[in-house]
Design a protein around this nucleic acid. Structure first.
Length: 927
RNA sequence: GCCUAGGUGGUGGAACUGGUAGACACGCAGGACUUAAAAUCCUGUUCCCGUUAAGGGAGUGCGGGUUCGAUUCCCGCCCUAGGUACCA
């Protein structure tokens, strides 16, 4: 029988599904291993060949771990709330739930074709009420929690209330809004219910307050910082403006330091760790106050270089700074107003793009230098950002390039503060020299000066050491329909939680998925949608990242109706051991998920500080477009003629995208091309060597470029096993690369060779029970060792090559020994599960047992290396490969090498000066 | 600008801690089997010199360095991709 992937693969996929082959067993004996893929958003376009790359890798890893005796959890689900389904609903009126359901079914079909070992009984969908019930429940825990800086963890709000009742606001160390009030215990007890709630809201981890948000008018919603790229929306590229709105936020800043520290304990790719570090943006420095007697106030600045404080020659405020109006003198009022006016007209994009032009305006006011008492001018300029630090900086032109340019432009003093500075051409921020012009720190080094200055500022109550973070609290509301409703209602303008037993708060039906006429979110259209028929619900929904910030817990215990995950399940599965997905989630999902994980840990629901122990980013798979070249006539109009790539320079041509599915190894199928578009029916081809060769280009995979390759098509031609092997063979997992179907034949050929090892020339199944030869064992042991090493370091592409070598060797040896072949297919199973399962059964084993068969150990492992060639060089010139046994000691090796005829001849009787050993091997003989 | 990753044949890529660079695969060229095709198999394939061969030389982005020996380590530079950006 020939290798028939079509019937064989369907058969096993159905068998696995029917028998639940990949359900982890409830076991305490086996060690657990949790392998997770980033679950997909089920888009209408279906999967293309790039999507399964990471899934295949994680599947290989899962199957490998099962073979090694682990109890493996390997689930899959859908992140099914999101914008595209809603946009589609706006256009067509079709309910997003319907679109989503259709898309999920399509995804499932495509995933099933690839033969993944998912335990589908654990599937989750974030848009299912049974799932988002718990997303809402977790939101309630966040609403009902505050961050205690003293214990360095989140605590239920009750402990804060208790503190207020007994001590008032005194001694509380909490992460909170900056406008919290101070009160005594008795004052607290006299507060009205409303006043108490208002105060508590300033401490909650999920809170409501007026904040500046990224408003995208085109999408009709606010966006998180990570959803805004270069001033436009990540999705659609629409303009984004700053706007003040009442918004739900998550106090992620409370966790800034723990999120940062945690990065050191996890095994993630360096670029990703770096991205999170930059996003959190910790800078250590000092806050310094500059008194402004004129308005009886002070300007607080943040600096990372307090050592340069004697170089301060002016202060710059952001144009939006709250003190600007009060400071401005009458003489400067018009200059300031016109400058503010100009900056506010500049879009966010312009302001970012234009970093060259120096601009600013003098307020007319002066502040007192905290240490010298001298007057310093106060300016405003748009290079100072309102959103970072205090929105004000102390300008040190000798040490900071922006301040330097500003000083030059407006002819402000530049004071050198170090004996090693060179400030002729530019600012010099070096910390190497000793200070000059610096009063109490003159002659000191950087290390010495900093503590002296901080102490002095503290004495004067004009400053202190401070750590600043770039990260802002995460906006949590979207003015959208297709998301989780926030389980909150409003009484007297204040938010109150629903009762737990009232969950889930179901997404109500609406007539249209657009904002209301009064500009409220779509949920405002829901009729009779009121809490207890009288209180308004929250009308915005949760953002896309809500459902994905805890989903790995749900897989552990997906059908639990009493809790989001049971204690037993989370105690057993703990955290995700291996997480595979794209790096585009670096500052979104992966940060929020870590945040929620920490909150849930603090509140006692589990014990893991980090959710994802090891993370691998699979590279992006780009498209590889093919082009045909249409010949143009004298008037520049397209003709019926198409010229092959190699000859196109002899004609005037225009390149046209051609469907990559009718191109094979860059050679066009001209008959199918004629059917590709009606106007090509009469196409004439100018060929080279009898073929039409297409041009190529690497682009994003998209329908409009006709370069989308559907895995289903590959599978129907070559089979799922070929697809799996080929995706791995394409190159290193973490590297981005264009998809190129050229070369898949090689992998397909390999599988047919595997099949033929088990069959005689007539195609009849035939294996022998004879004892294998040494050479046969050697081939087997080599591949076992290689695959084991490769999988552990995620080098799947080299394993595929090694398999090819192994099978070629066994073919050359005409090996059909059961002892060899059975172990071979166990090793191959993670990569090509269908063909191996079939052969496993042909060998007389029970169906379905291959998944849990023991990974073969090689008791005769020495065979791998028993013949070893020593690369011996003389005077650095590599000359000899001497076959030697491995178990000889260095002295014996030396004797054999020197006695070898070739070596003797090369030495020509000269004396040996030195023999260089590396790890017990002779590497070089110096004469 | 800064941070991170990377640069190897016609192509994808290999070389795991410094030890015969180019494994494996595609493509290409030639051949066997076949009426023919498909399938399968064999041979060659980094570049240059050498008509063939034997043989020689160069070679892992560029220029230096360390070493008996460098794709691998160090210094400087160039280029590509991703991230980030008046962050004080």
């Amino acid at each position: 029988m020939e290798y028939n992937h079509q019937s064989l693969e369907k058969k096993w996929q159905q068998f696995w599904a029917k028998h639940g082959t990949f359900k982890p067993v409830p076991s305490t004996e086996k060690p657990k291993y949790y392998v997770l893929d980033m679950f997909p958003y089920p888009s209408g376009a279906g999967l293309h060949v790039g999507h399964p790359l990471g899934y295949i890798a994680s599947d290989i890893f899962s199957r490998f771990k099962r073979l090694k005796g682990f109890n493996v959890l390997h689930p899959m689900g859908y992140d099914s709330f999101g914008l595209p389904a809603e946009q589609y609903a706006i256009q067509t009126g079709q309910h997003p739930a319907v679109t989503t359901e259709v898309n999920i079914n399509r995804y499932r079909e495509q995933l099933d074709n690839i033969g993944f070992s998912y335990d589908w009984s654990r599937e989750v969908r974030t848009s299912d009420a049974s799932y988002y019930k718990w997303t809402q429940w977790i939101f309630m825990r966040l609403f009902d929690a505050w961050y205690n800086k003293e214990s360095d963890r989140a605590e239920p709000l009750a402990s804060l209330v208790q503190h207020f009742e007994t001590h008032g606001s005194k001694g509380i160390q909490a992460a909170s809004d900056d406008d919290t009030s101070t009160f005594t215990a008795s004052e607290w007890s006299r507060f009205s219910e409303e006043e108490q709630q208002k105060e508590l809201l300033k401490y909650r981890l999920a809170y409501l307050r007026e904040s500046t948000v990224n408003w995208c008018a085109a999408l009709g919603t606010v966006l998180a910082n990570d959803e805004v790229i270069n001033g436009v929306s990540e999705r659609g590229g629409y303009p984004v403006e700053q706007k003040k709105m009442m918004q739900w936020s998550m106090r992620i800043t409370a966790y800034a330091d723990r999120l940062l520290r945690g990065l050191e304990t996890i095994d993630w790719p360096e670029p990703l760790v770096e991205m999170q570090r930059n996003w959190i943006g910790k800078s250590v420095g000092a806050s310094v106050k500059f008194p402004v007697p004129q308005i009886d106030n002070e300007i607080e600045v943040f600096t990372t270089r307090v050592d340069t404080i004697f170089g301060v020659s002016f202060i710059v405020l952001a144009p939006e700074h709250e003190l600007v109006d009060a400071l401005t003198t009458d003489g400067q009022r018009s200059a300031i107003e016109s400058y503010k006016d100009r900056t506010s007209k500049k879009s966010e994009l312009d302001r970012m793009a234009d970093t060259k032009t120096v601009s600013g305006a003098f307020t007319g006011a002066f502040a007192k230098h905290p240490l010298t008492g001298e007057d310093v001018q106060i300016w405003i300029a748009d290079y100072v950002l309102a959103g970072y630090g205090t929105g004000a900086v102390m300008a040190v032109p000798s040490g900071d390039q922006r301040d330097y340019l500003f000083a030059k432009h407006f002819e402000l003093p530049i004071i050198p503060i170090s004996d090693s500075q060179n400030i002729e051409e530019a600012a010099d921020p070096n910390k190497d020299g000793r200070y000059i012009n610096s009063d109490i720190v003159n002659g000191m080094t950087y290390q010495e000066a900093v503590p002296v200055l901080i102490n002095r500022l503290v004495e004067l109550k004009l400053g202190k050491a401070k750590v600043n973070f770039r990260m802002r609290d995460a906006i949590f509301g979207r003015q959208r329909y297709w998301g989780e409703p926030v389980p909150v209602y409003f009484k007297n303008g204040l938010p109150y939680l629903l009762k737990e037993e009232e969950l889930p708060l179901l997404l109500p039906e609406v007539d249209k998925y657009l904002p209301t006429e009064t500009g409220e979110p779509p949920l405002g259209r829901a009729e009779n949608w009121k809490y207890q028929d009288q209180y308004e619900y929250e009308l915005s929904t949760m953002p896309g990242w809500a459902g994905s910030s805890w989903y790995w817990f749900r897989y552990m215990d997906p059908h639990n109706e009493r809790s989001f995950v049971s204690k037993e399940a989370v105690d057993y599965w703990k955290a995700v051991d291996l997480y595979i997905g794209g790096s585009e989630h670096a500052t979104g999902h992966l940060l929020y998920a870590r945040f929620w994980n920490k909150v849930l840990k603090d509140l006692g629901f589990h014990n893991e500080e980090e959710p994802f122990k090891k993370l691998i980013n699979q590279g992006m798979v780009q498209g590889r477009s093919n082009f045909v070249y249409r010949v143009l006539d004298e008037e520049g109009k397209g003709t019926n003629s198409f010229v092959s790539y190699g000859l196109k320079d002899q004609y005037r041509t225009v390149p046209l995208h051609v469907d990559v599915n009718i191109v094979h190894n860059d050679v066009l199928d001209t008959e199918r091309f004629k059917a590709f578009r009606p106007d090509f029916a009469n196409a004439v081809f100018i060929l080279e060597n009898g073929k039409y060769v297409c041009g190529t280009e690497v682009e994003k995979m998209s329908k409009s470029k006709f370069n989308v390759v559907n895995p289903d098509d590959i599978i129907s031609t070559y089979g799922a096993d070929t697809l799996r092997l080929y995706e791995m063979f394409l190159g290193p997992l973490e590297q981005s690369k264009p998809w190129n179907t050229n070369g898949i034949e090689g992998v397909y050929k390999f599988l047919r060779k595997v099949w033929r090892l088990f069959h005689d020339t007539e195609g009849t199944f035939a294996v022998s029970d004879e004892e294998p030869t040494k050479a046969e064992y050697k081939a087997l042991h080599k591949i076992i060792k290689k695959v084991e090493e490769d999988i552990e370091r995620f080098s799947f592409n080299t394993s595929v090559s090694a398999f090819m070598i192994c099978v070629n060797e066994l073919t050359d040896l005409k090996c059909n020994k059961r002892a060899i072949l059975q172990d071979l297919i166990i090793v191959l199973q993670p990569y090509a599960p269908h063909i191996t399962e079939e052969l496993w059964c042909l060998l007389g084993n029970e169906a379905g047992t291959l998944s849990y068969a023991a990974y073969p150990r090689f008791e005769a492992a020495y065979l791998v290396e028993s013949e070893f060639a020593y690369p011996v060089s003389i005077n650095g010139k590599m000359k000899f490969n001497l076959p030697l046994a491995l178990d000889l000691d260095a002295k014996a090796v030396e004797e054999i090498v020197l006695a070898h005829a070739d070596v003797q001849r090369f030495l020509e009787g000269k004396a040996v000066k030195k023999i260089i050993f590396v790890k017990g091997k002779i590497i070089n003989v110096v004469v």
